[in-house]
């Protein structure tokens, strides 16, 4: 199992930060997922052996955290917040808009593998609602028009 140099450096340093190896698990999983796209069986067994855990233990942890996934996702994960603050300012309309525009539902992925759509809980942008996170980037004070621009932006980025 091959990870990037950057990942290896971060991992090597991170495990020295804790009295127990396994403490590095959660952030390590997220960085691994960012590289591979999802947490494949291969990644799981690799990290399990590195942190002296059973694969079961690793899966138990993965399945707990909502950002971690064992299934492939689109290039861009469009996470629309519909929690109270965003809901009051049109979060749900935004979600439906994306759903129509992309032709996919919650946790669906476009056939071209470009976008995955996800309805998510509060992402800490309440005062700038409604807000969307595409992968790790925040887009705030959105309207359906602005949302279109955002999506088109990513589509361009994804295709070139």
């Amino acid at each position: 199992m091959k990870f990037s140099e950057e990942f290896e450096q971060r991992f090597a340093e991170m495990v020295t930060h804790y009295p127990t190896k396994r403490s590095a698990l959660v952030p390590t999983l997220l960085y691994a997922q960012d590289e591979v796209g999802f947490l494949s069986d291969e990644v799981i067994s690799e990290l399990a052996s590195r942190l002296a855990l059973t694969e079961l233990e690793v899966r138990n942890v993965i399945s707990y955290y909502s950002m971690l996934t064992t299934k492939p996702r689109g290039k861009f994960n469009v996470q629309v917040c519909t929690n109270i603050a965003c809901m009051l300012r049109g979060g749900e309309e935004l979600l439906h808009h994306c759903s129509k525009k992309l032709g996919i539902g919650h946790k669906g992925t476009t056939p071209d593998g470009m976008f995955t759509l996800e309805e998510v809980e509060c992402i800490g942008a309440c005062s700038w609602a409604p807000a969307v996170q595409v992968n790790y980037d925040f887009h705030e004070n959105l309207t359906t028009e602005k949302m279109d621009k955002v999506l088109d932006e990513y589509k361009k980025r994804g295709t070139q």
Partner: peptide, 8 residues
């Protein structure tokens, strides 16, 4: 240790 808890 063959059993675990998954999801939440």
């Amino acid at each position: 240790w063959a059993l675990g808890v998954q999801n939440r």
